[in-house]
Simulated scan of single mutants.
Amino acid sequence: MKTDIIEKIKAHKKYVETLGEQGEKLVLDEFQFEDINFIDIDFSESYLTECSFENLKLEKLDFYRAGLYSSSFANAQINQSIYVKSNTDYTSFVGATVSDSNFFKAELPESDFSNATIKNSSFIAADLREANFSNSKLVNVDFKYTRFKETILKDSVVENPINLDEATIKSINIGTLKNPIILENEQATQWMLDNIVK
């Protein structure tokens, strides 16, 4: 199994490098990644539906424009990785540690970052509609043009946010998914500044 997936990753790299002329696009469904040295791997434009990267150390991975629908990075250690323009709807980052990573223009509706720690990373122009950041800690995160709509922020902490004043904050949820408490527009922004921004 390990040899098979490594060969598929190599074929995908060739597919990307040759713009589809050689190799084969990586398409996996409900696959559990394990026992692989996850350093500097190109998953760009792959389709990884309901796949698991749980509890893994991920270094310099590239998920540019990848489809990561309902996949899980729960409790993973993610460093210097790229999720630019990825489709990451319903994806779990529960308990993950994310550092120096880029979520520029990532589609993250209903993704789950609860209990995660995110440092020195960018969510510029990312879509965080109904994403869950409850009990999370975000440090030195760039929110320029980030879209908040019913984003769950219960018991989260945001330290030294970057460009938060340029985010689009339509609404936030300071309750839970089952028992929402929705604040909108200026009220939402003021609550964030008063309660979670440090």
Rank of each mutant, 00 (worst) to 15 (best):
S72K: 09
D165S: 12
L153F: 09
E166P: 00
N160S: 13
S81H: 09
S92G: 07
K85C: 14
D194M: 06
K137G: 08
K178H: 07
E150H: 08
G95A: 13
T146V: 15
L153V: 15
A126M: 08
A11Q: 05
G95N: 13
Q32D: 06
I172D: 09
I41F: 03
V157Y: 08
S111P: 08
Y64V: 05
G23H: 01
K149A: 09
A11E: 06
F53L: 01
K14M: 06
N120C: 04
I9P: 01
I78W: 05
K13S: 05
T18I: 00
N135V: 03
E24D: 00
S136L: 14
N120A: 05
L26P: 02
S171Y: 10
A96E: 05
F63H: 06
D127P: 02
N160A: 12
Y90E: 11
F53Q: 01
D40Q: 14
L108E: 08
S70K: 14
I36G: 03
N87T: 11
N102G: 04
T189L: 08
N115Y: 15
L177Y: 09
I39K: 15
K2A: 10
A66N: 04
E21G: 00
F38I: 05
G95I: 14
F73G: 04
L48Q: 00
I82A: 09
I39R: 14
N132R: 09
Y145T: 14
A116G: 07
K198C: 04
L153S: 06
S72V: 07
F133S: 11
E159K: 14
K13P: 02
I152P: 05
S134Y: 06
T3K: 13
K178G: 12
D62K: 13
W191K: 05
K57N: 15
N132S: 09
G23E: 00
D89F: 12
K13N: 03
S92I: 05
G175K: 09
F53Y: 04
N55R: 11
I5Q: 01
S46H: 01
A66C: 12
K178L: 10
E150R: 10
I82H: 09
I124W: 07
A126S: 15
N102P: 06
A11F: 02
V158F: 13
N160F: 12
S52Y: 07
I196R: 01
K57A: 13
E186P: 00
E166T: 11
F103W: 15
E7W: 02
N55T: 08
